[in-house]
């Protein structure tokens, strides 16, 4: 059943092999002349300010908001695609349903918009 996907998997395998190979050999074929400054985080030439361990750092909240919005709209598309493929067969019922669907989402969208969720200052 997965036969049609075989080329895709092969492509994936080839790309993965290439990328992994490249990433792995990189440290070995290049020169190694380390010094302490090289290993620091890059901060425009000044001594790096103390940073929390990776991942514990602060992230602007607006990014979370964007991520959430993305999830919602992405999920919306999940429903729109099947509809789009079979729109002609669904007829009026499908049209009304999808309009309701988009409309409902529109309410939330309007809310987010109006309350400044889409603004980046």
């Amino acid at each position: 059943m997965l036969q049609p996907y075989l080329p895709l998997v092969l492509m994936f395998a080839l790309a993965a092999a290439f990328a992994l190979f490249s990433a792995t050999i990189a440290p070995y074929i290049g020169p190694r002349r380390y010094n302490r400054a090289k290993m620091d985080a890059y901060e425009c030439g000044i001594e790096p300010s103390p940073q929390p361990v990776v991942g514990g750092g602060r992230m602007p909240i607006a990014y979370y908001l964007t991520a959430m919005l993305f999830i919602l709209f992405d999920i919306e598309m999940v429903f729109l695609y099947p509809f789009a493929v079979s729109a002609d067969r669904l007829g009026l019922f499908g049209l009304v349903e999808i309009a309701l669907f988009v409309g409902t989402l529109g309410f939330a969208y309007a809310y987010v918009w109006r309350r400044g969720g889409l603004d980046w200052n």
Binding site: F107, Y111, R115
Partner: peptide, 10 residues
């Protein structure tokens, strides 16, 4: 509930 969301918005 939907209308209520709109009220919040507008």
């Amino acid at each position: 509930a939907c209308v209520s969301v709109l009220l919040e918005a507008f």
